[in-house]
Amino acid sequence: MGRVTRRTPARQIRLSAEQAVTVSTRPETLAVEEPLEIRVDGRALTVTMRTPGDDFDLALGLLLTEGVVTRASDVRRSMHCLDAGEDGRPTYNVVDVTLAADVPALPASSQHPLLTTSACGVCGKASIDAIRLRSRYAVRDDPQSLSPQLLASLPDRLRSRQKVFDRTGGLHAAGLFTAEGELLAVREDVGRHNAVDKVIGWALRQERLPLTGHVLCVSGRASFELTQKALMAGLPTLVAVSAPSSLAVELAAETGMTLVGFARGQRLTVYAGSQRVVIPDEQRDHAAG
């Protein structure tokens, strides 16, 4: 679609050690943020602010993590509606998902608020407890085993594939890894939750669900919403570069998920599910505790 980035003039101000001010004008590259309306069977479900691209993955990932669909066969068709902008050209900002005939239609009471933002948390949810009960996968039973070295390496591997971030510095990313550290899919977006939905939507289309034995790595913090999205896809481990929230840790502990935060360089903190992080005895001698 060619609308992932946009150039804009900006004034750059630099201060010297002597507090002298230097001003220059130069074009800057920005990450594009535009609304995406998601429709189900022709009915508007929600609008989210996102970075254009991988829109079908985003729509399907959101439907999966909201419990609307559970498998690729639940979706009969995904298509962009030919909505037009003020210039008369298609915006590709509306996706209509047609569900399979045997998938229950959405009741009117399930309709989301019509606008969510790219920084959305748990928006418009009637009950956090209701969300916790939706996952059909028991990640607690996943026998996955991971080394601290592998977990610590994931953020750098993810960062090396953030092509649009290199140009803008303004996007989050989510990456899906195997237990051996192979990077299967990367998605970028101005919204952390959108990047995760895009990765999960990709996995749904590839008929890889549940994501048993896989690891999700995110470039920012681990919120409750990102943790529940991982659970909906059957992911046993979530790794974040920054801190988790209290609700994220509680949800991970209750469901048997491994939650890792502050994975930066040679350090990481395991907040839940430490049984999956295996440290050999010969290495443990060098650990503090």
Rank of each mutant, 00 (worst) to 15 (best):
A230P: 00
G265N: 05
T51M: 14
R7C: 08
L259V: 04
A243G: 01
L60E: 13
Q144N: 11
R221K: 13
A31G: 10
V270D: 10
L259A: 00
G121W: 04
A174I: 02
L216V: 00
L184D: 12
G234L: 06
G234D: 06
G256I: 00
S24W: 07
G256L: 03
L151K: 01
K198I: 04
E66G: 06
F177K: 05
A84P: 06
T117E: 15
P27E: 14
G234V: 00
Q206P: 10
L154G: 02
P236M: 03
R50V: 13
T227C: 14
F262T: 03
A222C: 02
R221I: 04
A272I: 03
R89Y: 12
L184W: 11
R192H: 12
C123D: 15
T227I: 04
L235G: 05
A130V: 04
C81N: 15
C123N: 13
G265T: 03
E34G: 10
V94F: 05
M257Q: 12
R3V: 02
T48M: 15
D83Q: 09
L60A: 10
R43P: 00
V139R: 02
R6I: 04
T168V: 10
R167S: 08
P280D: 14
G170P: 01
L268M: 14
S153G: 01
R11S: 12
D74A: 10
F177T: 05
S24A: 14
D57Y: 03
S274G: 07
L151I: 05
V21Y: 13
V95A: 10
L251M: 11
L154N: 07
P210Y: 04
V4F: 02
S73P: 04
G124Y: 06
L251C: 12
L62S: 14
R77N: 09
A138Y: 00
V139C: 04
V239E: 06
Q149N: 10
Q228T: 10
T29S: 13
A59Q: 09
V122M: 15
R205W: 00
M1T: 07
P155M: 00
R134D: 09
D83S: 11
V239R: 06
R187A: 10
R161G: 03
A44K: 09
